[in-house]
Amino acid sequence: MTRAHSNRGRLSRRSLIQRLTFLGGGVVLLGPACKRSSESQEKTPPADTGPLAAKQDGQAPRTFSSFEYAVVAAATERILPRDEDPGALDANVPVYIDRILQTPELEPVREDFLSGVAALERRAQRMHQKGFAALTAEQQDELLTLFKDSPPRSGEAHFFELLTVMTLEGFLGDPSYGGNQGKVGWRLMGFDTVGTVASAPPEGYDGPKCLRECGVHR
């Protein structure tokens, strides 16, 4: 899964990051803004095993095949596993990713993500003769670490970053996108306890008064 990257020079990355910092809140359009070069796109046909498996709430996935969906679900749960607090599956992160990748402007991201999922599955088959979703948590972590530690401009490293970023978006984004179910992500990060109105305040809302009287925005 090698592919020619645009040169993301150290300094130009830095300037992108800094501009965003000034605005606050880190406007980052989908992790690395990667230029794709067509000859490097392996057109991997989705390794669909047919109409078997994973459906969420009886809804067929929109971007992924059922098989890919199962891989994505397993991988995101390793990025944010359930422990004493909810994890990626509790937050419906795979539903978020499946839906958001339908956005027309995100086509390059969709392609990157799908070829990353295919590469992860290929690597699982090669190393363990099993699909990624069928591996133990330890084996899955080992594979994800391999991707993470791949050379900085490799497709594997790029996919690991994309997977992390999209998992966090699905965990911490507005629930209307399908993820952050029950606002479990916001609760974990304390987003609704730091004086921030997570959703737009109602008309006639008196912010200073609310701060004085309740201590937090409600």
């Binding site: 406007v27 359009l29 984004g173 507005d174 996108y177 959703s199 737009a200």
Partner: peptide, 17 residues
């Protein structure tokens, strides 16, 4: 107040591709 819309998509700024 939607971080995905405002900060991670092309609501304000165009995507680089």
């Amino acid at each position: 107040h939607d971080e995905i819309l405002n900060s991670r998509r092309n609501f304000f700024m165009p995507v680089p591709w």
